[in-house]
Simulated assay, not measured.
Amino acid sequence: MTIVDRYITKKYLGTFSFMLVLLSIVVLVIDIQQKIPRIENATAIDPKLNVTYFLLHFYPFWIINLVVTFLAILVFISVIYFTSRMANNTEIVAIISSGASFHRFARPYLLTSFFIAIISLVVNHFVLPWANIKKNELEAYTYNAANKEKILGTAPVSAQLSKTEYIFINSWNKREKRGYGFVYQKFDKDRKMIYELKANDSYWDPAKKQFVLNSYLEKTINKNDTEKLAQGFELRKSYGQAPEELFPNELLGQNKTTPELIKFIDREREKGNSNLNTHLNEFHQRTSMPVSIIILSFLALSLSSQKKRGGLGINLALGISLAFIFVFSFEALKVVSENKSMAPALAMWLPNIVFFPVTLVLYLKRANQ
C-alpha cells in the first residue's frame, strides 16, 4: 500500500467514523425526546420500564440496528464529503498528474468499501439478530397505541403445525400469553377430522414449555365414524414450539441468524403464513445492503472527484438527495413486497440493480476524462 493509498483510506475511515458517531448521537437524542411519552405509558404497565431502563436495555441495541440500516448511506455521504474536499484542494489533480490512472486512484476506495461491506455482511447475518432480540423485547412499547396492540395486544391467532394439524385461538393476549377459545384439530390424509381438542381458556407455562388447557373436551373420531369423548379440568400439551414461534409477529424474523431464518421461512411457508414476505424481505436485505456500500461508494467517488463551481456544498446537496432517494426506495419497496405486489428478492435488490449501471456509466465517464 502506497502513501496515497494510506492517505485515502485514512480519510475514508476517519470521515465515516465521524459521520457514524454524529448520526448516532443526533438521532438518539431526537428519538428519545419523541418516545418519552410512550415510555411513560409503559412505566404505568411495569414500573421498571422507565427512561433509564430503556437507555440501558433498549437504545444500545437500537443504535446497532440504526447503524446497520443507514450504513450504506453513511458511506455514501462520507465519500462525497472527503473526496469533494480533496478535489477542491486539487489533491486529486496532483495524484493523477503524477502518473496514476483514475482506476489506480480508485483502488483504496474499492478496498475500504469492500472491507466495510464484509464487516456489514457478517454483522447483518449473525450479530444484528442478537441485538434485535434485546431490542425487540421493548420495541413494541415505543410504538403508538395501534401498532403496540398488534405486537402485545389481544387478537385471534392460528397456526398450522403440519399438513394435517391446526391450532385456533379466538382471543390470545401476546404479552400475557393467555387466551380463550382454544381449538386443536387433526385430519387424516383424506382431510377427514380424526381428533379435536377444545378448551375454554389456555396459557403458556414457560417453565415446562407447555400449553395449559382448562375445562377441556377431547373428541376422537374412529374409522367407523363413532366418537370417543373425554373431558377434564386441566390438560397440558406440548406442540413443539413456544407461542412466539407458533404465532409469529413481524419482528420475529429479525431475531434469527440467517441459518435460523432460512429454517423459519421454510416452516412458515409450509404453514401458509400470510406475513411470509416480511421475513423474506429481512433475509434478502441482509445481503443487498452490504453490496450497496460498494456501489454507493463508487457513485460518490464519480460524483465528487472533479472540482465543481458549487464546491463542496453542491456535492453534499446532490449526495443527500440521492441518499434520500435510495432510502425511500428501499422502504417503499418493502411495503410493495409486503402487499405481495412484487417478489421480495426483486424488491430488496432493485435499488442495487438500478444504481449499479448508473454508477458504472458515471465512473467510466469520469475515468476517461
Rank of each mutant, 00 (worst) to 15 (best):
E91N: 05
Y141W: 11
S202K: 01
Q34Y: 13
K209P: 00
L301T: 10
F283T: 04
A155L: 04
L299R: 01
L251H: 12
F58Y: 15
Y195E: 14
E149L: 07
I151K: 03
A145R: 11
I119K: 07
I314M: 13
I262A: 14
A131E: 12
V212L: 08
F326R: 07
F247I: 07
H284T: 07
H284D: 04
N249H: 03
V335S: 04
V21S: 09
V123E: 07
G319V: 09
N200Y: 11
V26T: 15
V335K: 02
K135F: 11
A159P: 02
V336Y: 03
F328E: 00
N147C: 02
F76Q: 02
F168Y: 13
L362S: 10
S329P: 03
E40D: 13
Q185N: 13
W172H: 01
K11D: 01
I118Y: 01
N255I: 10
V336K: 06
F126E: 15
E227W: 01
E260H: 03
N124T: 13
A131P: 05
A347W: 01
L252W: 01
A230W: 00
A207I: 06
Y7C: 01
I133L: 11
G313R: 05
L213N: 01
S84K: 01
R178L: 12
K208W: 00
Y184E: 11
N136P: 03
A140K: 05
Q34R: 13
I133A: 11
Y109E: 00
Y141K: 04
I294L: 11
S113E: 07
I25L: 15
A230M: 08
L197A: 10
L246T: 07
R6Y: 04
A94F: 00
S297Q: 05
L296T: 14
K256Y: 14
I30M: 15
L299Y: 02
L261C: 13
R178P: 12
T257R: 15
F16S: 05
N315S: 10
N65G: 14
Y166G: 00
Q285C: 01
L350H: 00
T69G: 06
F105L: 15
F182R: 04
T220W: 05
E227H: 05
G272R: 11
H284R: 03
H57F: 02
V354H: 02
L229R: 13
N89L: 04
T43V: 10
L362M: 14
N315H: 11
P243S: 12
L56K: 09
I45W: 02
L333P: 00
P351K: 03
L23V: 14
G310I: 12
D46C: 05
V183W: 10
P129S: 12
N315Q: 11
S321Y: 01
A199L: 04
T2I: 08
Y195M: 12
P351R: 03
K174F: 15
Y195T: 14
A140M: 08
S337C: 02
I3N: 06
I194E: 10
A332T: 06
G153D: 04
F264N: 12
I320K: 09
R6V: 05
A117C: 12
G99W: 04
Q306K: 14
E91I: 08
Q160Y: 06
E282V: 15
A146C: 02
Y141M: 10
V122Q: 06
G240M: 09
L261P: 13
L161C: 03
E338G: 00
V358C: 06
A343K: 04
V122E: 06
S292I: 09
